[in-house]
């Protein structure tokens, strides 16, 4: 059995993703389409929330991937810091914009959902607040990558930021929970799929979540390939200059 670390070699990674990426991309589009179409058109309306509840099939998978993307960046950053595999650092770089967009989708669909349900676009509910904070962390991470010329220095600095940021993101999450339960009356609004959710909703939701996971994977693979090509260009320019 080939070692997982073989894929840390950019060449091996490129060769594998040459055939893997199209498969993942097609699967992502197919599974997401099935999940969303099933969810939007073939589920019953909720007896209280009506058809608005169906935005859950966009909202929950996006919110889930927003967090998972950060966790993946954290793992990739650790791998870069410990084992110095370039693909790992580049994958973390490629995941950040995807995570940012997922967070944004989660926030926007949440607002669209919240307007008819709670009568407001926004509430300083701990969960909403945490996502807004996560959005800020993504922005900072991406901005730091963009600000640094040398790719290895950028990888090192953003990896450390990701580590430290993760600790503070978790702290912020607990601070937000604490803060809202503190002075203010709890908003008692929950955007989570209720535990009593019917299988008629659950099944398409799980399909949709899988689809979003595949979309994330496809986008990260594509993004990493772009970053590897950019590094290859840089390496070639360097060689040109040496010759």
């Amino acid at each position: 059995m080939a070692s997982f670390w073989e894929y840390a070699n950019p060449l091996k990674f490129m060769r594998t993703t040459d055939w893997l990426l199209p498969i993942v991309a097609v699967a992502a589009v197919a599974v997401t389409s099935i999940g969303l179409i099933w969810g939007f058109f073939f589920t019953p309306d909720d007896f209280r929330q009506g058809a608005t509840v169906k935005i859950v099939f966009l909202h929950v998978p996006a919110a889930m991937m927003a967090i998972n993307a950060w966790v993946m960046m954290l793992v990739a950053s650790l791998v870069w810091l410990i084992r110095r595999h370039h693909v790992s650092a580049l994958a973390a770089k490629a995941a950040a914009p995807v995570g940012l967009v997922m967070t944004l989708i989660g926030l926007i669909t949440g607002a669209v959902w919240g307007q008819p349900m709670w009568g407001t676009w926004w509430a300083w509910d701990p969960r909403l607040t945490s996502f807004l904070i996560l959005f800020l962390f993504y922005l900072g991470y991406i901005a730091l990558w963009a600000a640094i010329d040398d790719p290895d220095t950028g990888a090192d600095l953003t990896a450390v930021l990701c580590l430290v940021g993760s600790v503070f993101a978790v702290l912020s999450r607990y601070a937000a929970i604490f803060w809202n339960q503190g002075l203010h009356q709890g908003a008692s609004l929950s955007v989570a799929p209720g535990t009593r959710m019917d299988w008629a909703y659950k099944a398409p939701l799980y399909v949709s979540m899988t689809g979003f996971g595949l979309i994330f994977l496809a986008l990260v693979l594509a993004g990493t390939r772009t970053e590897i090509r950019a590094r290859r260009m840089k390496a070639l320019v360097m060689r040109e200059r040496m010759a």
Binding site: L11, R231, A235
Partner: peptide, 9 residues
């Protein structure tokens, strides 16, 4: 030779 940029070429 396993040079600095070998991985990307």
């Amino acid at each position: 030779s396993g040079a600095f940029d070998e991985a990307f070429l």
